[in-house]
Design a protein around this nucleic acid. Sequence first.
DNA 1: AAGTCAACTTTACACTGTGTAAAGTTTTTA
DNA 2: TAAAAACTTTACACAGTGTAAAGTTGACTT
Lengths: 198, 198
Amino acid sequence: MMSSKKDETQSKILEATWKLLESGDYQSVHMAHIAKKAGVSRQAVYLHFKTRAELLNATTRYIDTVKDVDLRFGPTREATEGIDRLEKFISAWVDYIPEIYGVARALIALRDTDEAARDAWDDRLNSLKSGCDKTIKALKKDGELTETLSVSKATDALWALISIHSWEQLVLGCKWSQKQYKDYLIASAKKILVNIKV
Amino acid sequence: MMSSKKDETQSKILEATWKLLESGDYQSVHMAHIAKKAGVSRQAVYLHFKTRAELLNATTRYIDTVKDVDLRFGPTREATEGIDRLEKFISAWVDYIPEIYGVARALIALRDTDEAARDAWDDRLNSLKSGCDKTIKALKKDGELTETLSVSKATDALWALISIHSWEQLVLGCKWSQKQYKDYLIASAKKILVNIKV
DNA sequence: AAGTCAACTTTACACTGTGTAAAGTTTTTA
DNA sequence: TAAAAACTTTACACAGTGTAAAGTTGACTT
């Protein structure tokens, strides 16, 4: 095959980057370290990716492919009842966060200096927001959305509530368990978004 | 006076750092630039602040002094009734955010690449958290804290709820007005944290 | 089987930013 | 007016990004 060697090296670099990002030690995710971990020379990395920003971007795309993101949110879309859907949506998202956190963190870090990284990150945020939108609309349809918030405002509110920053602060910062965080988030989302019935 | 000159130089450095942080160009907040802006040599900066971390830390403290933070939170501390205190605390904090956002954003941006800035930022976060703690304890004292959360968990939750990231996302990102945000935050905090009475 | 080409390695360098060191100058204070 | 403190200048060590260029390897052509 024409470029099997090239593809192989590229994969090794992407895998190495992924592993380093996941390690949580963001300072260690530099070109020399990535190259070493991938078992190639530092210059080989530059042959495949012009800059560090480009490499990190490529890594997020690579991870999405490998993790098959769409598959995870299947149960969410299948839930027909509003509150059930809200719970499943939050649950799926909270489960997904730890898996992408390393990369997310790196992208957030690059966001300010690198336009490409910012676009990549904004893309992800918008896709999450459209998930929020569908969830809120399902609530609304069932007449279970609180009367104090419009669909638009409720979408924004849910989006902010489930942000990675919040997870970072409570799970990583305050040492909440994944379960504690999920339960808290679902309970809070219901209190804030769901209409109280008599 | 023994050290009037020293104090003067120190102030010039702190002012220069502040201005650079506020400029929004986080990349430009490095020692050489700060020195130039302050009109002193780069080494003079190191005479006053051992590391960049220390300087950024000192700058946030300096800003607090100039802005007279304690004064703002006076009404909060004077509120004796739990729920009243919660409202006043959130209100004072939300009013304060826009004033410090420039510096906050810079510190958050620098936090990822720079251990220096992270320490400075963590200091600020911890001081906010202790405010949350007092607020939650006042709620608890009045028997108005929800039974589903411990004091510790409720403190963490309030802290996450009022985070700058959340403000950034909703006010700057989703174009909520300052009033909308404040009202939403107070209403949500009550729903999440306050015991529902019969 | 020899040649070519792409992928990769090695070495070296330019550049930016942090922090240290030391010698020299100015300003303050005693 | 002499000592001490504050500040300047110059120079260096170190880490990380990105560039440049010459050399190596292996696979695919002809």
